[in-house]
Amino acid sequence: MPTSNLKIVNFRCFSNASINLSEGINFFYGKNGAGKTSILEAIHLASSGKSFKSSNINSLSKDDKKSFLIESYNSSSGSITTVSKNEGKALSIKLNNKKITKINLLIESPSIITDNHTYSFTNETPAFRRKMLDKVLFVSSLSYRESWIQYQRLLKQRNAALRTQDASLASAWSAKLASNGEIITKSRKDFLNLVISNFHTLLDYLSKKHSINQLKKIDIAFLKGWDGEGLLEEINNRENIDIKAKTTTKGPHKADIQFLYKNTEAKHILSRGEQKLLSIIWTYSQHKTIKDMFNKEPVLILDDIKSELDSHTFEVFLSLLELIETQVIFSCIEDIISSKIEDKFKGLKKFHVEQFKT
């Protein structure tokens, strides 16, 4: 759900700001420390209840203030989302003045953030890549969400039994754990198959305009988290290993997505700029798949887009931007959108952020 107007009070470096956004492309530029990322962070917080910069919500208030407020208004639906924090109280999330949970907020107003961590996701851990995948499916699919929550609960219970060396109790959780694990894995496979198809279709389109030979040679492999066919059989066969390790050593909680270049991990071959471009294209491929499979259109948020992109890879990004039909919000230190580029994008809005003002 796109944000038409964003109101920020006592958040990060902003005392009070109101920003009217385009439902298409929005570009924020300005010097380091001016507040560009804080605006993107506020938009993400209003769609997820979480900051992508800090896990400490109390640290987000401006200076010595003890509270903050973020209000997001959508003109199409007339809905208002309010995220606020007052001293000594938990984070408050309201939709049209009614309290909702973070999960409901994610479902109502999904967004996909691409920042310094996700730009280098091929260098990150399998857990990080799983988290990226799970977040997308979690907010898009009710069946996935239910199975994922159940799996995490059962995994915690089985691991607790393994830590006490209670084989019979650990075994009692195995069947339900495996059943939910199989559902999670099938959902991941189905989703990723379509993402990979969209990814290669997108590369074919971009390669007609730009030289992206390295990226076209990327192969993507999904590792489900165990070696055999059935998960229950795998869990049962590894019971003694799990008891010794005091944890469940195989399952979808060990899954990964590998990006390979001629059987070598892409992170060892691609430049940092190419890795960043790969991340952006992969993010858009996921976004298109969410729309195709679940009829949802998350807001795309890209922080510090130009860093490590040379002029060629930036041109590829602009070609990609022409395809995006949902709200996009991105930032950069310099004004990289010339009037010639601006004319290509209907409804594009530019914001110069300077000394905590736009």
Rank of each mutant, 00 (worst) to 15 (best):
3 T>L: 12
8 I>W: 00
9 V>G: 06
11 F>G: 00
18 S>W: 07
18 S>M: 06
20 N>D: 13
21 L>N: 01
22 S>H: 05
25 I>V: 12
27 F>L: 02
31 K>W: 10
31 K>N: 14
32 N>F: 08
33 G>D: 06
33 G>M: 11
37 T>G: 03
39 I>A: 02
40 L>N: 02
41 E>V: 06
42 A>Y: 05
43 I>R: 01
44 H>F: 13
48 S>L: 06
48 S>G: 10
51 S>G: 15
52 F>A: 00
53 K>H: 07
54 S>T: 15
56 N>L: 08
58 N>E: 15
58 N>Y: 14
59 S>Q: 15
61 S>N: 11
65 K>L: 08
65 K>A: 14
74 N>Y: 05
84 S>P: 04
89 K>R: 11
98 K>P: 05
100 I>M: 07
100 I>G: 05
103 I>Y: 06
106 L>P: 03
106 L>S: 12
119 Y>C: 00
121 F>K: 00
130 R>W: 08
130 R>D: 10
131 K>G: 10
139 V>S: 11
140 S>W: 01
141 S>L: 13
145 R>W: 14
147 S>Q: 04
149 I>Y: 07
155 L>F: 06
157 Q>M: 15
158 R>N: 13
165 Q>H: 10
166 D>H: 10
166 D>W: 08
168 S>W: 04
168 S>M: 14
169 L>E: 11
171 S>Q: 15
173 W>R: 01
174 S>W: 04
175 A>V: 11
175 A>R: 13
178 A>T: 00
178 A>I: 00
187 S>Q: 10
189 K>M: 06
191 F>Q: 01
194 L>K: 09
196 I>F: 11
198 N>L: 04
199 F>D: 01
204 D>W: 05
206 L>P: 03
206 L>I: 10
208 K>L: 14
208 K>W: 04
210 H>G: 05
211 S>H: 14
214 Q>N: 13
217 K>V: 09
221 A>N: 10
223 L>F: 08
224 K>Q: 12
228 G>H: 07
229 E>F: 12
229 E>C: 09
240 N>M: 12
240 N>F: 11
241 I>R: 12
245 A>G: 06
251 G>V: 01
252 P>W: 03
254 K>T: 07
255 A>Y: 02
256 D>Q: 08
258 Q>N: 15
258 Q>G: 09
259 F>Y: 10
260 L>A: 06
262 K>V: 09
263 N>T: 09
265 E>D: 12
265 E>L: 15
266 A>M: 01
273 G>A: 10
273 G>L: 03
280 I>R: 01
280 I>Y: 02
280 I>Q: 00
283 T>I: 04
286 Q>H: 15
287 H>S: 13
287 H>T: 15
287 H>V: 05
288 K>E: 11
289 T>Q: 02
290 I>N: 02
291 K>H: 05
295 N>Y: 12
297 E>I: 07
299 V>S: 10
301 I>K: 04
301 I>N: 01
304 D>I: 00
309 L>S: 07
314 F>K: 15
315 E>T: 07
317 F>Q: 03
319 S>C: 13
319 S>F: 09
320 L>Q: 13
324 I>K: 01
324 I>C: 01
327 Q>S: 08
327 Q>H: 10
328 V>W: 00
328 V>Y: 00
331 S>G: 08
336 I>A: 13
336 I>P: 01
339 S>M: 12
343 D>F: 12
344 K>P: 03
345 F>Y: 15
348 L>S: 03
351 F>N: 01
354 E>K: 15
